[in-house]
Design a protein around this nucleic acid. Sequence first.
DNA 1: CCTGATTGTAACCTATTACGTTACAGGTTA
DNA 2: TAACCTGTAACGTAATAGGTTACAATCAGG
Lengths: 95, 95
Amino acid sequence: MKMHSPPHPGEVLKELCLEPLELSVTRAAEALGVSRKTLSAILNGRAGISPEMALRLSQAFGTSAESWLNQQMQYDLWVTEQTVGKLDVEKLSAA
Amino acid sequence: MKMHSPPHPGEVLKELCLEPLELSVTRAAEALGVSRKTLSAILNGRAGISPEMALRLSQAFGTSAESWLNQQMQYDLWVTEQTVGKLDVEKLSAA
DNA sequence: CCTGATTGTAACCTATTACGTTACAGGTTA
DNA sequence: TAACCTGTAACGTAATAGGTTACAATCAGG
């Protein structure tokens, strides 16, 4: 039913965390304790948010790690739904 | 704050889905369209629930894919919290 | 006792992904 | 021009989901 893509967590991170604080990618990566490449990949949607990265974000920005992983989960699920074709699954329960 | 482990999703799958329907591992793997090894690994906590597997479970048992991924996320986060030491993260926001 | 079914798991393979360092090219700005 | 930020390619490591095949252990029926 859901048709359009949930936002990639990297977009949210950029718009809600980096831009309001006027943080450069280089500076933010430094603060998070990861390489500039790693953060850049996330911001540009070429990598997801790992549990460890979620912890880093929560410590740096005072947000919850769950919220980041939740967004990532929604995004991954949407991508998978769009990607995989019909799965050959047999219905098992009555409901 | 949280101290004890959230249940591994494999336990939940076994107790809430397989056992009530008296499904064997072999039979359930067949129905899900995956190898017996793959399902066994999940049931015994040696593999996590991937987005595709969550879709298979939702189709087989009439549950939501999100609920499975949510459990997996909680579990992964807990494991990561227990595993990684102090992360060298600089606090960035005021809150 | 033998047979068949079920199970966990090891050994091997592939594909993907997060992360790192180094290096380059393009842009902006003082 | 020089200093900085940026995306990204090229190389590496480690982890993980998935597959097939094969083996040993358990348990139920004949």
